[in-house]
Write a protein that binds this DNA or RNA. Structure first.
Length: 533
RNA sequence: GCGGGUGUAGCUCAAUGGUAGAGCAAUAGCCUUCCAAGCUAAAGACGAGGGUUCGAUUCCCUUCACCCGCUCCA
């Protein structure tokens, strides 16, 4: 399917606009129009109802190890800066990068390693990114100085192998893939987190960040929820909200936006059962997308390879969708389900843990003290039946609301053939959205604007409108009105015709099959209600 | 961030160094009795900034956005 057509329809029908469009737009930011906002609200609402408000605390769900409880949370976008230091985002998101002018490659400034080498009257810092750095640096230096292997000892090495950021000058560096020195740019900050300032006076002490994920707000409120809500482990805390990431290359419509909305759950359980809960969430979340209309053939549940995983995690799986803007066989992430062990709660308790340590230990700074101090609060859990105290393990199903919405849009976009008024087949563009997600549930259309039809139609419109979003349209040919609703994804059209006035029935037209059935006027509300769930 | 391409009305396209034209859509009205193209009317655009010029949508520079490829993707 052609992505341009989908983008064009989104714009034309008011699903999605570029942010600040009249000023030329802003890269990586998108606005939802009148139809888009309803669609996205429905996506979030469906998620919230299915995961939180309609969750049955008393019943064991299929595949679940036991019953569990669910509750919600809505925390601030700006949090204490220490949150991001202990979560690891600060170190990971605030990087200095250097670009190579020659090869157009980009490197983390602190990850490029090299060593000073001097030969034939020239001195330079030979860099590499390779694992076997010592021989690679020697090989590259030898090649650069055009020395034979037997003359390799003409190279005078100065100092140990170190990282590029320690030498502070990129102009004498031979980039890891470059053929001559001086092609690396000066290091530049890549603030993947959006910095902001708290308070009217600018200064380092007021520096804060817009959250890059909603999850940390759940961890830092873990104890509050426990103390205020009588929930017992296992339980989950859900949150929907905006997050911000300064993506290097926003691309592919709303897929990689800098401001986006997440639907996240942190599910807290006993370490002994965490593996089973991980399986449960992974399968349940995959099914959710299928239940809402994504084709199984375009959806995949990809388990991360064991060597991709942190040692404290027993699994991470991505739910991925074959977006039309991706190459054949490629998938884009909709949701990640991660087994995070006790990493997050312990980091906020003890201080940022070193994810590479095993068993996990607090990461220390150069002074031997914790690099980032934790809150010092006790975030362990005491089971008051067994009296056991432990730090819960966490399963994190983290979904992108905008990505899910985009996937539903892409999946729904369909071109098929429908006859025009002369019986000739015409291309029809239709958004086959799941009725639960469709922005409008029905349209009420008087066949013609006379003979009392609009009056009957308006009464029906009002009766339906009390229950859900409905559109009334009496203008122009009815076929044209049908097609308009098809592009909006409205699953049902109800047409009031001459017969309605005598026998009190209307036609109910199905968006996807184009079938029409007669329904009693008095039954329409109930009929639509049952069909849209 | 790099390279290539694109930018005229809501959409598709046209013309021009001298006040930008059409089709479709949308709007108002008429006509219509179930799947977009019946009639009438009015409305609507040169992405932004700067330069050259008497005059720039057109030529030049810069910038912004989108598309493709690379890079990045915690």
């Amino acid at each position: 399917m052609d992505m341009e057509k989908i983008v064009s329809l989104c714009r034309r029908r008011g699903f999605l606009f570029q942010s600040s469009e009249i000023y030329g737009g802003l890269n990586g930011f998108w606005d939802y129009g009148p139809l888009g906002v309803e669609l996205k609200r429905n996506v979030k609402e469906a998620w919230w109802r299915d995961m939180v408000t309609q969750h049955d605390d008393l019943d064991v769900l299929p595949g679940a190890p036991s019953t569990y409880e669910m509750c919600g949370l809505d925390c601030t976008i700006i949090m204490h800066p220490q949150v991001w230091k202990c979560s690891g985002h600060f170190d990971l998101f605030v990087d200095e990068m250097v670009d190579c002018r020659e090869t157009k490659k980009r490197y983390r400034y602190d990850q490029v390693r090299g060593r000073w080498a001097e030969a034939k009257g020239q001195k330079l810092f030979v860099c590499t990114m390779a694992e076997n750095e010592e021989e690679e640096i020697a090989r590259r230096a030898q090649k650069f100085f055009k020395l034979r292997a037997k003359d390799a000892d003409q190279i005078a090495w100065d100092g140990p192998i170190t990282t590029l950021d320690k030498i502070g000058d990129t102009s004498q560096a031979l980039g890891p893939d470059a053929s001559e020195p001086g092609t690396l740019t000066e290091p530049r900050d890549f603030n993947l987190m959006f910095p902001t300032i708290i308070g009217a006076l600018a200064g380092e002490e007021g520096r804060a960040f817009l959250r890059p994920e909603t999850a940390q707000g759940i961890f830092v409120n873990f104890k509050n929820v426990l103390d205020s809500s009588r929930v017992r482990i296992p339980f989950g805390i859900a949150q929907v909200g905006k997050s911000f990431r300064n993506e290097i290359t926003p691309r592919n419509f709303t897929f990689r936006s800098r401001e986006f909305e997440q639907m996240e759950i942190e599910f807290f359980c006993h370490p002994k059962t965490s593996k089973e809960w991980y399986q449960f969430w992974r399968d349940r979340r995959f099914k959710w997308y299928i239940d809402h209309g994504l084709a199984e053939g375009r959806l995949q549940l990809r388990d991360h390879d064991p060597d991709e995983l942190s040692h404290y995690s027993t699994g991470t799986a991505d739910i991925e969708y074959a977006f039309p803007f991706l190459a054949e066989g490629e998938f884009g992430e909709l949701e990640g389900i991660a087994h995070r062990g006790d990493f997050d709660l312990r980091s906020h308790m003890e201080g940022k843990l070193d994810p590479k340590s095993c068993p996990l230990e607090v990461e220390l700074g150069e002074d031997g003290k914790p690099k980032y101090k934790g809150s010092g609060r006790d975030l362990t859990y005491r089971d008051d039946l067994t009296n056991e105290r432990f730090t819960p393990h966490v399963i994190e199903p983290s979904a992108g609301a905008d990505r899910a919405t985009l996937a539903f849009i892409c999946e729904a976009y369909t071109e098929d053939e429908a006859p025009d008024d002369k019986g000739k087949m015409q291309t029809r563009t239709v958004m086959k959205l799941h009725p639960r997600l469709a922005p409008l549930k029905a349209a009420v259309l008087p066949l013609v604007k006379k003979d009392g039809m609009p009056e009957v139609a308006k009464d029906l419109y009002r009766a339906l409108k009390a229950k859900f979003p409905v559109f009334y349209d009496e203008k122009g040919a009815v076929g044209r009105r049908y097609r308009r609703q098809d592009e909006a994804g409205t699953p049902y059209c109800i047409t009031i015709d001459g017969d309605t006035l005598s026998d009190k029935t209307v036609t109910l037209r199905d968006r996807d099959s184009l079938e029409q059935i007669r329904v009693k006027l008095d039954d329409v509300v109930e009929e639509i209600e049952s069909r849209v769930g």
